[in-house]
Amino acid sequence: MKPSLSVIFFTVSSGAGFGLMALLALADVLQWGGGLSDGAIVGVGLIALVLVTAGLLSSMLHLANPKNAWRSFSRFKSSWLSREGVFAVAFYPFALGYLLLAYLGVAGAPRAIAGVGTIALAWITLYCTGMIYASLKPIPQWHTPLVPIAYFVLGHYSGALLLFAVLVYGGQGAPVYLYSVLTWLALAAAVKAIYYAWMRRPGVGATINTATGISRARVRLLDVGHSHGTFLTNEFGFILARKHAVLGKVLVFVVGFVVPLGALLLAPQIVVTALFAAVAATVGLIVERWFFFAEARHVVRLYHGL
């Protein structure tokens, strides 16, 4: 699949935003490390909303006919993309209400309810985004429960890192937030490792024989029938060299996981290292997203001899 920058930015940015918001509200509701100051909650919450909003707006850039985007809420019953849109919009009143209560210093049940609603909607939206990809049968590399799980975990990993970095900056970086980062980092690395191992053989898939219905002989493309590129070759014909695929995985692990881990273990409570870890992880996740697209092979490629 052709890696599209607007979709890469959308998934990384809003993934981090939803993860950040969910962990922030979770920390507040469960009073992790004695809880956060209301000022910190509002500050971090606004960062999360900016990330979510920037991501969602960027996903609009990818539409060829954005004037009809409002219609995308209409197929909630069948379409994961529609569900994602509905839940992402439903997330806003809860998140804004929750931040308003924190801003006003209201504690107790109303804030807890708004907080839990925020967490639930952030989680559901993340799951829906993952399912948009996982529901596509013609793309074997995506048609697996590992995809929504990885998207969920990676969003929380980058969210946890951002939360920690901002808290360290504000002098509130209690150890529990560092442990949260390390837990999500371990989960993220584990899920990606499983995914990459699985992707070497993503199930029994279609071949050029099942695609053409010629099951008893070798089939080889003679001519694609068009002289220059088509929508199909442009969208699905992207070819990634094998050595680049390996390089990509190494990059994801080194920049996305090993470097942030090193920085955090060396000097967790220093603003610069915490921020550095967050930036490195974000770069790692952008690379991860790019290869997520680049390595996905749509079955229509079979008809093109690819």
Binding site: M1, H62, L63, A64, N65, P66, K67, N68, A69, R71, S72, L81, I132, S135, L136, K137, P138, I139, A206, T230, F231, L232, E235, F236, H298, V299, V300, Y303
Partner: peptide
């Protein structure tokens, strides 16, 4: 149609093509 391309991803047979002019 809003031109999101998702249906073309869901079609295994390459039957759908986005018209760049109409979006």
């Amino acid at each position: 149609c809003m031109g999101c391309n998702l249906c073309s991803w869901a079609c295994p047979y390459g039957a759908r093509e986005l018209d760049q002019d109409s979006g």
